[in-house]
Design a protein around this nucleic acid. Structure first.
Lengths: 238, 238
DNA sequence: GGCGCCTTTGACGCAACCCTGACGCGGCGA
DNA sequence: TCGCCGCGTCAGGGTTGCGTCAAAGGCGCC
């Protein structure tokens, strides 16, 4: 996995690196930028807290040995207002230090010297689990003057009351609404709703389009939203 | 009456330990139980996947060296349907192994021999960040005209009295309530409640929906809150 | 070892859905 | 003008899916 984002084009992941050793910062910045991360760097705790507030990074890499304040204090300062993942770097191998940092709110603890591959993998893991849970399941609402379709909840509302749709009716409606304004061919409708082996049974469409219109159109015999394109297909118009 | 926002009695954290070395399992189980964790243990990958589906642990400790299958496969098997934190144990120090496990979906990677204090701290960190984000933003109390569901306390109250639900009944209710207003497909319900290998046993749903309605609906034969969408799934309406 | 609760499984009646065929209508081309 | 094709409408019948009940299997607890 090279890029931090996968699938839909996404804003680049922003990383805040906090370390007072210039060579480590340089190595991190170079590696991160090469992987399309956006990187900010701070050399002391005060700057780090300020930058974190100003830039809202998606993940923080924090060296515990800072010149101006204790690393654990930095963690606590961050945890006072944000749940951004914090990956701690430290030269100390002591178990007590690790426990203290983790219990203060750190998400991971890597001891120096560290392997860059491992650090990057841990960083990916931290970012990944911070991502929102739902797989892009936003509330998708499509409204017309007569009714409202909620694609996520699979609900249709008309005049304040929920309309009951059968599975096939809903499926057909969904395909049409997902292509609002576009013509959908009869073959495509049949294949999406009834399966790939269908394509000529246009009578199915006639029956079910009639059901949809009867349930949703103000005047079913003069449809405004479920438009027939003779010989070609159907179109949903908002 | 306890306020739901603060001081709600919390269910104990459930841990699933997966390791084929008995002495390590014993050490972990003893230490975890002493700290009021609820612990399940598995000695191989197949058992682990089954237990994870059946018990829905809050965090998983996984040894990569299992007798029956590759540890990474176990991770992938879990990640197919759950985001439960996975803490990997391994005797291998190789960077490649760590990267592979982390990119497969593990949350942390600890090499053996490990310090118990550190492991427990990492476990706490994993559990902590898996907790729901908003302090009071998440709705834990869902009220209807007939009953009240407390998702945090895992309790249902009807007419001033607590309703007794079996584990399966509660689980089903929880999934439905967490998706209030949205249609939940039969497959999704089966997989979330009974495990990823289920998906067609709709008779389970019929039986348990009937139980829920009998216990919670004012008129079980004419449900207002647990609505059937024939051929598609069920929906909880407040 | 026995008991009770929970889960799983099977059988049955009933309602709803899906498919099918028939018919009428309008548009288009011959 | 006539005939054909595509579309809309309606009603019937086979099939599926759901609710309900009851009983058997599993498991932990006493």
């Amino acid at each position: 996995m090279l890029s931090p984002a996968e699938g839909t084009p996404q804003a680049p992941t922003r990383v805040l690196v906090i370390d007072d050793e210039p060579q480590i910062v340089r190595a991190l910045v170079i590696n991160l930028k090469a992987r399309r991360y956006e990187v900010d760097a701070a050399h002391d705790g005060a700057t780090a807290l300020r930058l974190a507030a100003a830039r809202h990074p998606d993940v923080i890499v924090l060296d515990l040995g800072l010149p101006d304040m204790d690393g654990v204090e930095v963690i606590k300062g961050l945890r006072g207002w944000t749940r951004v993942p914090i990956l701690v770097l430290s030269a100390r191998h002591s178990s007590d230090e690790k426990v203290e940092a983790l219990d203060a709110g750190a998400d991971d603890y890597v001891t120096k010297p560290f392997g860059m591959d491992e650090l990057l993998a841990r960083l990916r893991a931290a970012v990944r689990r911070a991502e929102p849970a739902g797989g892009g399941e936003d509330e998708v609402l499509v409204e017309t003057d007569g009714f409202t379709v909620d694609l996520a909840a699979k609900k249709v509302n008309r005049a304040g009351k929920d309309v009951r749709l059968t599975p096939t009716e809903w499926h057909l409606l969904e395909v049409l609404v997902r292509n609002t304004g576009r013509l959908v061919s009869q073959k495509q409708l049949l294949q999406e709703v009834w399966g790939p082996s269908y394509g000529t049974e246009t009578n199915y469409l006639r029956v079910y389009m009639a059901q949809l219109r009867r349930k949703l159109e103000a005047d079913p015999s003069h449809p405004k939203h479920f438009v027939t394109e003779p010989g070609m297909g159907y179109r949903f118009e908002r």
